[in-house]
Write a protein that binds this DNA or RNA. Sequence first.
RNA 1: GGGGUCGUAGUUCAGUUGGUUAGAAUGCCGGCCUGUCACGCCGGAGGUCGCGAGUUCGAGUCUCGUCGGCCCCGCCA
Length: 587
Amino acid sequence: MQRTHTCGELTEKNIGEVVTLCGWVYTRRDHGGLIFVDLWDKTGLTQVVLNPQIDKLAHQEAQSLRGNFVIAVQGKVRARPEDMVNLKLKTGAIEVYIDELEILNPSSTPPFSCWENQEVGEALRLKHRYLDLRSSELQRNLELRYKITRTVRDVLHQKGFIEIETPILTKSTPEGARDYLVPSRLNPKKFYALPQSPQLFKQTLMVSGMDRYFQITKCFRDEDLRQDRQPEFTQIDMEMSFVDEDQLFSLAEEMIATTYKETLGIEVETPFPVLKYKDSMNRFGTDKPDLRFGLEIVDVGEVVRGAGFKVFTQALDAGGQVKAINVKGSAESLSRKALDDLTEVAKTYGAKGMAWIKIQENGLQSPIIKFFDKEMLDRLIETVNGEPGDIIVFSADTPAIVADSLANVRLALARLLKLIDEKKIKLAWVTEFPLVEYDAEEKRYVAMHHPFTSPMEEDLDKLQSTPSEVRARAYDLVLNGNEIGGGSIRIHSKEIQERMFKMLGIDKEEAELKFGFLLDALQYGAPPHGGIAFGLDRIVMILAGASSIRDVIAFPKTQKATCLMTQAPSEIDPKQMNELKLKYDLR
RNA sequence: GGGGUCGUAGUUCAGUUGGUUAGAAUGCCGGCCUGUCACGCCGGAGGUCGCGAGUUCGAGUCUCGUCGGCCCCGCCA
């Protein structure tokens, strides 16, 4: 029997036609004389009817049907009696009277029902991922994922990009994340690394005159997993020659806006606002601010300097900061318990505690006001624009801890007070990142983005003197508080690249050993170029409204980076170890 | 490396202060049923309480360890 229609397309227009449907038994309702089967495929459900008066044999055979059996049926489309129309189904106006039934494949009883809305443990769902993927939610997510990549390919194609594949077996690169390694059988004691990104290859392609490259490709980083992070993930990677930030931003904006339009039918405004890293850190404590709500951070260090409150003065004396958030109108809604919980949030990010002041009509309430004189309190309240009904929360510590703790207290507050409008889409560029940051452990500067990121021209003279003040031509794209992409204008001058390596403490031999091929390439007419890479999984997750990256990946890993379906990773045969000339040395 | 949380029929869960034979719903199996659509009615089967020690006359329940899922810190150029 050859399928003539899918299970989601028959309507009144097909009444009278003889059709053949194939699909899975969704439910079977056996009335003894009459059997109803809801037949499922990814397009929908169709009710088929087995009536012994239409075909005795088919009816008899249908008694053995069970859930998830794969069947083919042939019969005539009929209108349902008027009061039997099922408005819940697209195909609810019709049903198919079957005169031929073929069981293509029976099914064991599955460990869980993939169609019912019963909450099933994620471990079990991952073990039987093929069943879980039948659910409408995952079907919808994977379809959205495909629509997004298709739109991206369309847009980039129109803009003159070509997709070029780069190696998966490649060279281990220093810095950055931990590499996944693959032993080389033909070259004992040597290893390939799986790429953390195609970074070096795409820059090399610019030297080749490819002009505009993109690739939707897997990247690998052997680090711990999170809700929005997998060791194996997909980047939309791109690179362009002869561009500056403006051209690159507008292209990326068009790509994102078109994606929203084509997949969700939503118009997003372009151009996206641009926020300098420094301003983002000052106002939100993070380089990926969620701009859907306010609760901005205010520096009150100068106001409280010299107060009798040791927590503040000690932080300031040690070169730290005191910053605050005015939680407008929250005096009623934020309980003592909520403030304790927020304090725990602050502590998670290194703060030793979280001070607060409640402004009431009849004065201030707080465990710390006794340490301040009235004049200082007045100025403090004025600085944060405080009014009766507000609560001011404080963090005092090193700049990094103040930023980190308040950024996360801010997010927790927004969730607690339900300040986030889920319909809002707030995209922004964050620019002028520091080129390097000091690594206390390694006692040297390390590239914040990567060592090929171009410094800003006006900061070039600080490369030697004050490296930490040099700003980079690097940028991130932030969507509702998530970093969804990042990139930079690259260094194409050999001279600047050498100064960069010098600052990072990488000598000539080391540079040659680690990045030799790119450095060679850059000597042979490297055009000015820059690029960006987007995290596809995160973008799909946000557009799908999914709560975990696992919900937009067909076969995701668990938090311990295993696959419950394939049981990867697994032990290997000693023969394979011998071939690779590898030996365990477990400690 | 660290913190939190969960683990009991196939599944989702309940299980009191440590006390008789561990329950419910759903699913599954059998029977009945010609207008259901999460069909209905009757009956039945189904448990290494994640695993291992310990405390106790007695452990699903308490203690320790361990394994696994999830969330978080660190980590993620």
